[in-house]
Amino acid sequence: MTTFLREYTQGVYDILIMPEYTFMRRALVVGLLVSLCAALLGVSLVLKRYSMIGDGLSRVGFGTLAIAMAFNAAPLTVSIPAVVAVAFLLLRLRENSKIKGDAAIALISAASLAVGVTVISLTTGMNTDVCNYMFGSILSMKEWEVTLSIALTVTVLLLYLFFFGKIFAVTFDESFARATGIRAGGYNMVLALLTAVITVLGMRMMGAMLISSLLIIPPLTAMRLCKKFRSVTVCSAVLSVLCFFVGLTLSFALPRGLPTGSTVVLVNVAMFLLFWLLSLLKVRRKVI
């Protein structure tokens, strides 16, 4: 145990200090910012029963990345607009009660994955690039992705700081919010847009299969113990950043080298289980 801790601390030290690990610091910055934004947006998504949207969007992201690679286009310039478009579409379907939202997401998600896999096997074949897109790679962070994630974080933080009350109102009770003159539709659009961008951005690091966990798990964990919207939001953001940091450094510092995406998810799951246990204990104490 002590050897493990020593190695881990040394690893963390390396990442933060060693200048030759530029890619690592990029991954750290992008990852922390993406985790922060994802956790904030995730609170609204989970509470509005949109949990599957992140999952669906990441599959669409994967499909479009495959197409972009086939045509030698810059991956994200194709992916981001496509995923944003699908996010708006899903939102529309959700508002139209005749088509069930979850079925639509499942349909789009399966279709995109199938398109992606087909296009890949027709062109490049299942190479490392493809594997990286599916399960993530911390090596792939580019300079402009750092810029994009900083811009996105600033937007999300400003939004949550200045419109917190309205985000609460729209999440808690959309028809009341509309009736009192809040433009709920507008807030939903912004939420969908930001979720789409976060999904594509995070997909590079976490992988298409795992990115939705960053949106969903931290809010769920926070909800085990927190009982107010404000505390759930803050707790979710803090947990997400913490779990990402631990996950990333673990994956890098351990001698074997674990895949980053799955390690982060596992740390998140462990945190969820911990909070769940704590909530059970709390209930029991109340009963006694």
């Binding site: 509470l47 509005k48 029963r49 009350g165 309205k166 609460f168 109102a169 808690f172 009770d173 028809s175 009341f176 919010a177 009736a179 009192t180 003159g181 809040i182 909800m223 927190c226 009982k227 107010k228 919207f229 404000r230 759930v232």
Partner: peptide
């Protein structure tokens, strides 16, 4: 407006005062 309650609200983590206060948003 007092709408009918939705499923979403039944297990929503919100403080009672937070909810009441959100009524002031429109004005």
């Amino acid at each position: 407006y007092l709408p009918q309650q939705t499923v979403v609200q039944k297990d929503f983590p919100a403080g009672a005062f937070e909810v009441v206060l959100s009524g002031c948003l429109g004005a």
